[in-house]
Write a protein that binds this DNA or RNA. Sequence first.
DNA 1: TTACAATGTGGCCATTGACCACATTAGAAA
DNA 2: TTTCTAATGTGGTCAATGGCCACATTGTAA
Lengths: 199, 199
Amino acid sequence: MAQRKPYHHGNLREVLLESALQLIAEEGPAGFTLRELARRAGVSHNAPYRHFRDRDELMAAVAAQGFRELKQAMLRASRSGSDAIDRLKRAGLAYIRFALNRPQHFSAMFESPTRVQTDYPDAAAASEEAFSTLVTFVKNCQEEQRFPAGDTREFAMLAWSMVHGVAKLATTGRLRHRSTVEILKFAELVIDNSLPTGR
Amino acid sequence: MAQRKPYHHGNLREVLLESALQLIAEEGPAGFTLRELARRAGVSHNAPYRHFRDRDELMAAVAAQGFRELKQAMLRASRSGSDAIDRLKRAGLAYIRFALNRPQHFSAMFESPTRVQTDYPDAAAASEEAFSTLVTFVKNCQEEQRFPAGDTREFAMLAWSMVHGVAKLATTGRLRHRSTVEILKFAELVIDNSLPTGR
DNA sequence: TTACAATGTGGCCATTGACCACATTAGAAA
DNA sequence: TTTCTAATGTGGTCAATGGCCACATTGTAA
């Protein structure tokens, strides 16, 4: 179950995951093939099947890793926040920054069919954990009386929708080819505009 | 250039586009193949190449058609609005309703690689037109003094990000398997929360 | 030392996208 | 009406892919 040290290659599993990211980066999520992965790792076209049941499972593993990194990025960014609202905002910006810096991961996480999420418990758990992190930030805002009371998850989904929309449009090149800095500035506008400060 | 009436089959081009939607609906955007399309249309595996240069071009055609329908849906929905803000809001809800009712189109429009958008002028134009429609709604809000003055396109992108985020999360099954009605209610919450009524 | 299970290999097959040369037929030109 | 050309559809073919098989290799534990 857990990845023990590989025997012949060294650490095929990790190398495959890394190569997958590179390939996705180079040719998009559709342009990553198991055989090309094997080629880059210098193993036969069948070796990957010892570590992943099929292509989808490898994709799910990439997505799971992405969700874990996303969670860490949000936690890290929030630490420098002055209050709950500021921490939530910084986490949101970190979400978008993650999407911009790791578009490969981001597309693997969200462009794969729905059932990949449900069929692979690891990916589903990582996804849920990332969302829970967001829920916690929102709850803190409510506890500090900066947010109206009410369904915490509902507010969290609202916040999620915001940043996800910006991230998706940005990573698919729909926000007028801008620089990362400009996009993050725009993201700040979006976040500030939708925080219920005046409610 | 323009699709004239097909000779042998009858109207292969249209049938292919329809079948593509069905296939995308059944097995996701990745599970649609030119050969399966041909099979369903009862023609040889090569016939589609007379109407589309390759798989991507067919995909782009599906996307273009989707953008046109999206535009129409927004215009239709906005008609019953009482003022500019209300019309914008109804257009936004129509956007999300479109994504929920036509997930096949929606994924074809936004899950394909960026270059598909730029390489196929028809799809790019349809996309731009849909966005322009949104810009017009925002501009009307500004003219009615319901929105602060400023960069109209910036506000339009903000509105777009909002509804796109909800639509994307909803169609990828991340908003807790809800009914369409519940999702639209949530969408209303999101939209109301971010309209700059209090600014 | 031996046995076993984890890991990697080559062979194989159906499917796919894409190209080719060739057949058919609609519709303009005669 | 007949002819001819270009649009449309067909079968053949190729390389690449995902996935399965039996078999080979090797770390590790008995």
